[in-house]
Nucleic acid binder design. Structure first.
Lengths: 252, 252
DNA sequence: GTGATAATATGACGAAGCGTCAAAATATGT
DNA sequence: ACATATTTTGACGCTTCGTCATATTATCAC
């Protein structure tokens, strides 16, 4: 009988569907009411299952939140992959990754903040080994993507690696700047009050400059950086940029 | 009578002394057993006061932890100030700030991690307005210190600001890189496994390169960067470096 | 259909932690 | 030595986490 063959799959499908429902609900609650108000009981109530059922999916509250973060990081990776696959120079592709990163943060500021929750010891201490591994695997995937691109750039001769910088060094440099820059931008510290102009633009300029510092061809002195920015946005992230500008219109 | 004059001060002294005791104890517990094991009851037990007394000092667990972080940031600011006051070129002084930052993270890795706790929404949501202000004021102090130095550099003509970068931009760039770089270094992601060499060195090289990119004189091409690193360490942070190497000998 | 069996859902419960507050203890001033 | 002000205490109420025996539902053989 095919009943036997379909039996488990259907159950599994239901299970996975419910898991997404729980995650969606939790994400909404997190966005609307904050982490402090997020309780297993409330989630259960909202999805109209009992607490025990939630615990069939996630072994603890921390595991649930981490699963949420994993989903967010996966979305980020999709954007990165799209940038990576752009048919241009290695420098353009790396710039596209940066734009992907910025866009993600601008489009999903709350998710981007929540990802940080799972990086603190307070939460990590309570995570199950599996979820920790899952998260680390995703982080690794992102890093590897950047690494591959820089290695391509070196192989293609776009970056000369003669001096005291290798692919590691370079990836580390950009990744620090992007990561730190986005965290600064999303922090509650009012950058404008400090005299900073919009963080994304600054970050773009700074990373362009860092690329030049590595001698990453073609140098920005031979390129119209602003035009490049626009070009990449429309070629790769038209839909995202659209959502972004719509969002801005809504709010103000 | 002077009894009247001394009366309140003595009380206040005792109060402040006890507050430090509580913070010291909490810090130790945090280092040894992690955030999850840190409870108000346990702190009270350890300092041999009751829970109510702890709540006379800190209005919530989050406020206590934030106070801890504020103390850590204050220590960091001291190091920064020392670097800022170094009698050298603006570029040397900024490099010294970077070393101060690296040293702090290497000497107090656990504190540096804990500072991150207070940056997540999960904790921020529960913070009192005052403590939040206190923390923001300290952050502002650090930023301002860097900003002042870069402004000095511009005023002295060490950086030309003709193009599309201003003091804001530059501080933002370095601060992103330092902040992001240290976070990456302290994260559980095993950088070595990914092929990264020790993070501090990489960061040093990357920031030197970024300084060059800004045309910050004297350029590293005219300087022995390694020698500069050593010079600044011994001139400003001899004691800290000493502690650091001792610590390494202890552990391995 | 019906009953046996396996899988799943439930929510009452115990444990643990936060923050409060009336009462006890201590200090201060006369 | 007494009255008054201040500080300390820990029992208590409340919330939340995570568990588990029980109830419910689904599956399947006959």
């Amino acid at each position: 009988m095919s009943a036997q063959a379909d039996h488990l799959p259907r159950k599994q499908r239901e299970f996975q569907h419910r898991e997404q429902l729980i995650l969606d609900t939790a994400q909404n609650m997190l966005h609307q009411h904050g982490y402090a108000q997020l309780t297993m009981e409330r989630i259960a109530e909202a999805v109209e299952y009992s607490k025990g059922t939630i615990y069939n999916h996630f072994s603890s509250k921390e595991d649930l939140v981490c699963s949420l973060c994993c989903r967010c990081v996966s979305n980020l990776i999709e954007l990165f992959q799209r940038a990576y696959d752009y048919p241009g120079t290695t420098r353009e592709r790396f710039a596209a990754i940066e734009i992907a990163y910025s866009l993600y943060h601008q489009l999903n500021p709350l998710d981007a903040q929540n990802i940080q929750i799972v990086k603190t010891n307070a939460v990590r201490e309570k995570l199950s080994e599996e979820k920790l591994q899952e998260m680390n695997a995703l982080e690794h995937e992102i890093t590897q993507l950047c690494m591959n691109l820089v290695n391509e750039a070196i192989a293609a001769g776009d970056i000369s690696t003669s001096e005291n910088h290798t692919a590691d060094t370079i990836v580390y440099g950009f990744w620090s700047m992007l990561y730190g820059g986005m965290l600064l931008a999303q922090s509650d510290i009012p950058l404008e009050e400090l005299g900073f102009s919009p963080a994304i633009t600054i970050l773009w300029n700074n990373t362009q400059r860092l690329m030049d510092a590595y001698g990453w061809e073609p140098l920005s002195t031979n390129t119209d950086s602003d035009a490049l920015f626009t070009k990449l946005c429309s070629a790769l992230f038209a839909e995202e940029v659209c959502r972004l500008t719509q969002g801005e219109n809504h709010h103000g």
